[in-house]
């Protein structure tokens, strides 16, 4: 689905991706973890074509993404900060994205799922952060694309919504989608992930299941295993 070869990216003097190699062929939920500044968001944005790499190539569905923008039809993306044009109403935003993608969408179902009906006619700048994140989730999941990329999907969500999100992710996974996710909530990651990618200094430092991670670090808890990866003597 996604193949990344020798990906390099510098922002000024700062080397963010340094020869990153990645292959994602399998379905399921893949968590991308790593300390701040390890290149998680840059990696995601490289796949989406929002960041132009200095070197290396990204293939989505075997197609080099430099050639075009049409491949993004296969990707649903949830950005980290859900900040939309404030003058639009929720329904207008949803219909606008539907209009742009020109694809059948299951927005009604998702609106019901996240209990967003009361907010549909509100302007986006009047919404709370959590509600906005729900709108963000609706926008992301309504198209049923085979690849889903979620950048910090949990931010701003209350515990109930968090549960909802987890259920939703399970459903999507069962549909056979490839879901790439970044999150800071380790319990959430541990619970849902089929595969963990740990980024450090612009490369993939660890690639495996949660069980692999625990065994390779010799820690029984997921949090500690991650902390062990980041700790200086290890790095």
């Amino acid at each position: 689905m996604v193949n990344i070869k020798n990906l390099h990216k510098k922002f000024g003097a700062l080397k963010v991706l340094d020869g990153l190699e990645l292959e994602i062929e399998n379905k399921g939920i893949i968590a991308v973890l790593g300390p701040n500044g390890s290149g998680k968001t840059t990696l995601i944005k490289s796949i989406l074509g929002m960041v132009v790499p200095d070197k290396g190539e990204v293939l989505v569905m075997k197609e080099n993404i430099r050639k075009g923008w049409n491949y993004r039809k296969e990707i649903d993306y949830l950005p980290q900060i859900a900040n939309f044009p404030g003058n639009l109403r929720v329904t207008e935003l949803i219909s606008m994205i539907k209009d742009l993608r020109n694809k059948p969408a299951r927005d009604k179902e998702l609106i019901a799922f996240f209990n967003l009906e009361p907010f549909l006619n509100k302007k986006l700048n009047k919404l709370s952060g959590g509600t906005r994140q729900k709108v963000n989730l609706v926008l992301c999941f309504m198209f049923d694309s085979p690849i889903v990329i979620l950048d910090e999907p949990t931010s701003g969500l209350d515990p109930v919504s968090l549960l909802h999100l987890r259920d939703l992710l399970q459903q999507e996974k069962e549909k056979g989608k490839t879901i790439i996710i970044t999150s800071h909530i380790m319990s959430f990651v541990e619970e849902i992930s089929d595969r963990i990618l740990f980024l450090l200094e612009g490369r993939i430092y660890f690639d495996g299941t949660v069980a692999d991670l625990k065994s390779s670090t010799g820690k029984s808890s997921f949090d500690h295993a991650i902390a062990h990866l980041i700790s200086p003597e290890n790095a």
Binding site: W69, Y71, K73, P79, F84, P85, L100
Partner: peptide
């Protein structure tokens, strides 16, 4: 002001 909106659009199948 429309930076985030732009980010949203950039992830859509739309030409830059």
């Amino acid at each position: 002001n429309s930076r985030e909106f732009t980010d949203l659009l950039l992830a859509q199948p739309v030409k830059r």
